[in-house]
Design a protein around this nucleic acid. Structure first.
Length: 272
DNA sequence: GTCGATGTTAGCAC
DNA sequence: TGTGCTAACATCGA
């Protein structure tokens, strides 16, 4: 379920197990997730030491002592894992790094939309992918500058990784709910105050999600996320989670905006 | 068997 | 060049 908070959580885990480790072998169970030739990747990795980790948007970077960077993008269903023996590999492990510590670190991805790449630097990758500033770093002013002349609806713009990197479908819904802004508002029509609200909401949602290691059921009751169908924290048999956290008599609406499933509170988020 | 899915990218028509 | 829409990717799980 990797959006920025999940990727940050994965990065912290990878930093724990990978830092200063030397890669002793590259295990490829399904080359589909490789966006670089397997032999080229093996040549670049085996014998190298990981000197640091970083993240930009939904991308996780593993810095190699060669200067190159290993880039992990988790697609829709990517995850990480660690194990010691072959048979213990998590289900859907596609690629694993064998480490000098004896541990093996898995790139797990059931639906195989994730990708492993090699880049010359984070900056080179950022430019190649045209990634905007990380959603945790972008300021209200930058956000306003990038959006205030756009004549299209807000939600697809917030999902656009070249405007700001890291926001995905559920986070954008949560951010817009917290900021009390409708996803189909034309970006150009937002006031400075609303851009500030948007920025505040981005900070709130991302910091909350990272603080809970992206475990949704632990999020505050004030969050819209509990209304998403895959949230199972509500007591079975009740529909409590289908209602707005702020208006217990208002049912959360599901629609499609820019082709993506979108949840809103009709009461909090006026259409215009 | 059917449907929808958290991300990204290409293609097409304006 | 910007925009909006759709499909495709591969597969699972409800």
């Amino acid at each position: 379920m990797p959006e920025l908070p999940e990727v940050e959580t994965y990065r912290r885990f990878l930093n724990e197990v990978l830092l200063d480790q030397t890669i002793t072998a590259l295990e490829v169970q399904d080359a589909h997730v490789l966006a670089v030739e397997e032999d080229v990747l093996r040549q670049a990795l085996v014998g190298r030491t990981i000197t640091g980790t970083s993240r930009l948007g939904k991308n996780c970077f593993l810095q190699l002592d060669s200067g190159q960077v290993l880039v992990w993008h988790f697609g829709m269903t990517g995850d990480v894992g660690a194990y010691r023996d072959g048979p213990d590999a998590p289900r859907f492990t596609r690629v694993a790094l064998h480490l000098s510590s004896g541990l093996r670190v898995a790139f797990v991805d059931p639906r195989k939309f994730g990708r492993i790449r090699l880049a010359e630097s984070v900056e080179q990758y950022r430019q190649a992918k045209k990634l905007g500033p990380d959603a945790l770093d972008i300021t209200a002013e930058q956000l306003q500058h990038k959006l205030s002349k756009r004549k299209t609806i807000l939600k697809p713009l917030l999902l656009d990784q070249s405007i700001t990197a890291g926001l995905g479908n559920w986070i954008v819904d949560e951010v817009l709910f917290q900021a009390r802004i409708h996803p189909e508002r034309v970006a150009q029509t937002l006031s400075t105050r609303e851009f500030e609200d948007l920025h505040t909401a981005i900070q709130l949602v991302l910091h909350t999600a990272i603080g809970h290691e992206a475990t949704y059921r632990d999020f505050p009751a004030s969050f819209l996320i509990h209304a998403r169908e895959w949230d199972d924290s509500a007591t079975p048999g009740t529909d409590q989670h289908r209602f707005c956290p702020r208006h217990s008599d208002t049912e959360i609406a599901k629609s499609y905006v820019g082709g993506r499933a979108t949840y809103t509170c009709p009461h909090c988020q006026a259409a215009d």
